[in-house]
Each structure stands twice: as C-alpha cells, then as structure tokens.
Design a protein around this nucleic acid. Sequence first.
DNA 1: ACAATGTCTACTATATCACTAGGGTTAGTG
DNA 2: CACTAACCCTAGTGATATAGTAGACATTGT
Lengths: 151, 151
Amino acid sequence: MRLSKRGEYGLKALIELAANDAEDVIRIRELAEREQIPLKFLEQILLALKNAGLLQSRRGVNGGYYLARPADEITLGQVVRTLDGPVAPIRCVSQMAYERCVCPDENTCGLRLAMLDVRNAIADVLDHTTLADAARRANKRARKMRSRAAR
Amino acid sequence: MRLSKRGEYGLKALIELAANDAEDVIRIRELAEREQIPLKFLEQILLALKNAGLLQSRRGVNGGYYLARPADEITLGQVVRTLDGPVAPIRCVSQMAYERCVCPDENTCGLRLAMLDVRNAIADVLDHTTLADAARRANKRARKMRSRAAR
DNA sequence: ACAATGTCTACTATATCACTAGGGTTAGTG
DNA sequence: CACTAACCCTAGTGATATAGTAGACATTGT
C-alpha cells in the first residue's frame, strides 16, 4: 500500500507548481532545492509527467516547467497513476490494468470484493482531490499559522 | 498501492477458514490446493499469522489451523498489517510506523494532508471489514448464483 | 515405530526502487 | 557566432524487497 519516492516527489513538485500562481515557469533546480529532491531524479519524473501530458516545458535560458492545465483540472489520481501505475491493490479490481485472477468466479471471491472496496476508497480520494485542492489546503493552514504567530 | 502475494494468499486462506464453519481445523495442504497457493510459501504465511495471534494450530496427525478468534472479530486490517506492514501510503501518516518526513511543517504539507485522507479511506475499509464479512459476501453471491441456476 | 502434520531457518532468483551519469537538444545573451 | 543555461533522453548500478524453494526438526495420533 505504498507510494514510491517517485510518486511522492512528483506530487510535491506539482503541488508546488500549483501553488506558484500559474503560468510562470519554474526550473527543475528550483523545485529540487525547495523540496529536497535529488536533481537528476526529479528530471526524470518531470519528464514522465510531461510525456503524460500533465506538464509543459520551455527549454533553454529562462526555461522551466508549468502545468499543462489549470491546477483544478489535474487530480492526484492522474499523477499517481502516471508515476506509480495502477491504484488498485490487486489487478483483478484495477480499472487501468485489469487482469483476471485465478479464482473460479470473480463475483464470489470474498477477497476481490473487499479489495474492490479498497480500490474505490482510494480512487475516490485521489480522483476528487486536485492539485489546487492540495495547494490550497497547504496555504490555508500556513496562513492560519502566520496570523496566529502575528498576534 | 499494492497488496503483495503474501498478503493476498494470507487473506484468501483466512477467508476460507472463516467460511469453513469454525473450530474444525484445516490442513495447510488443503488450503493450498483449494486456493492454488504454493504449499511451502503458505506454510510461512500461516506461521506468521499464528505468531501474530490470529491463528492457532494443532500439530501431528489430524492437525491443522483454525482461527484464534471468531471470524467477526478479525479484521482484514489486522491481517494486512501483519503480512504487508503499514497500510499508509507514506510513513508520515502511518499509525503503526510513523516517521517524520522532511517537510518543515507537517500541518502545511499538501501532500501529507492528501495522503492522510487516503490512509484513512483505506483503513476505514480494512478495519471495518471482518473475515466473517468477506466470507459471508462470497457465500451470499454464491447462493444467489446457485438458486438462479436451479430455476 | 512410523506417518502425518505443523515449526523454523536459510537460501536464491528475479524484479523493483532510488537513484547516478553523461551526452544531446534548444534557446536566449553578449 | 560562441557560450551558457536550461530541458531531453537513455543507460547503468547498488540496495532492497518479493516470491518463492529446500530441508531439517518437533509433535501427535495409531
């Protein structure tokens, strides 16, 4: 049930991009430093995200990355599936990578039915939380902390 | 986000045990054949489950395994945690294996807050589904199919 | 005694993870 | 035009986890 570092780093970077009021690019190095991510590893991750159509980039001097779509149109689910593959705990309940299992009848397999619930619970959260949501929640909390500190 | 074969086999075996009206033992070999699980691998798994207090066994002739508690008092969560470790996608939201992450403030980390939702969603299902539930759902469906076929 | 069962530990092949390395391409700047 | 700053792409690598196999040992019923 684990999110890989790949997934973790990718999400962090995208949330950072979402927080950084859209449309101005950010360099990989910048993101890597802010989030403490190995630079070359992050390169690969952002590239994969770009090839999946979630990011766009500008090359050369003053280059960098920016979100391919508005932050509230990119869900965490899309990101996780791109970087970590299927969200389902077992293949026979996966939408994106279904594979029949060995049990004689899928509809009478207690394990499968339970894991289907798990898959749906995970997908529900991941597919209904956008980068904008994640960025907003972070900022809201941060603002609350700052105003408390200011008193 | 994946359940290992270890976890899968363990759950299948326990659900099978739960379905097999309690208190009479089942041999490892029996379980392995019914569920198509490599015998020696299943041995290890059941042993781990026993050491975790979820199973009990009788040795020697007519030996075998049986549930340490009633099937409606063992949750899938207990099994998964025993065989696959923490249910949380990242350590910093884990109950059983918490570990601080690198972000400066855990309460303003957008990723962490989202993953906390995911963890809770998973735990909700796993900790509220018992072996009895899983076994019952399987049987119910099976009965429905049989009665439909009988008509 | 012996056969059928669970117990325990060690080993192994393969895959996956988390990177690192390094060369290539594009685009501004002096 | 040369140079440099950025992204692009592929290959390699060491460590760890996964999914088993193997085999000796312990217990119990007949």
